[in-house]
Simulated assay, not measured.
Amino acid sequence: MTEHKPHLVVVAGVIEKDGCYFIAQRLENASQGGLWEFPGGKVEVGETPAQALERELYEELAIRTTTGVWLADSVFDYGDKVIELKGYLTQWQQGDIQLNSHQQMAWVALAQLDNYCFCAADYPIITALQDHIALVSESTS
């Protein structure tokens, strides 16, 4: 008998500002507690991924954003659930960041992302971000 695990579609925003990227550390008592992530959350019924991401970033960080280019999908089995994570480049429009569901935040350069311990599902998004930045810099040089 195959065990049926919840399959959650989750969105993550890669927010860039002045050449750095916003990452947030999950609360210790949360699932994947203490690990770093690109913030976001679950896509609710009837929402597009972009709508979900903009709503989640407002709920979690109190900022208004616009969803940009899709970077990658990452499917990861955490044992108790399967997460399908969709990562998007995201533009910050307005608001001051408030940590409503994280314990710490950081703005880090692309090369510094390796210094943080991320949730497993976030790693393919980091790789896609690195590839995207390399492509963009190639096309502008």
Rank of each mutant, 00 (worst) to 15 (best):
M1H: 12
T2K: 15
T2G: 14
E3I: 15
K5F: 10
K5W: 09
K5S: 11
L8D: 15
V11H: 08
G13Q: 05
G13W: 05
V14M: 05
I15R: 09
K17V: 06
D18Y: 08
G19P: 03
Y21K: 05
F22S: 02
A24V: 12
Q25W: 01
L27I: 13
E28T: 13
E28R: 11
A30I: 03
S31K: 15
Q32N: 14
G33P: 04
W36Y: 12
E37P: 01
F38P: 01
V45S: 14
V45G: 12
T48M: 01
T48V: 08
A50H: 08
L53N: 05
L53C: 02
R55S: 00
R55T: 00
R55M: 00
E56P: 07
Y58H: 12
Y58I: 04
Y58W: 10
E59L: 11
E59C: 10
E60C: 10
E60H: 12
T66S: 13
W70M: 13
L71I: 03
D80R: 06
D80L: 05
I83G: 02
Y88Q: 01
T90E: 03
Q91D: 15
Q91T: 14
I97S: 02
L99C: 01
N100D: 05
H102V: 09
Q104W: 05
W107L: 07
V108R: 12
L110T: 05
Q112I: 02
D114M: 09
N115M: 07
Y116D: 01
Y116L: 08
C119T: 14
D122T: 04
D122N: 09
I126H: 00
L129K: 01
Q130E: 10
D131I: 08
I133C: 02
A134H: 03
V136P: 00
S137G: 00
S139A: 11
T140M: 11
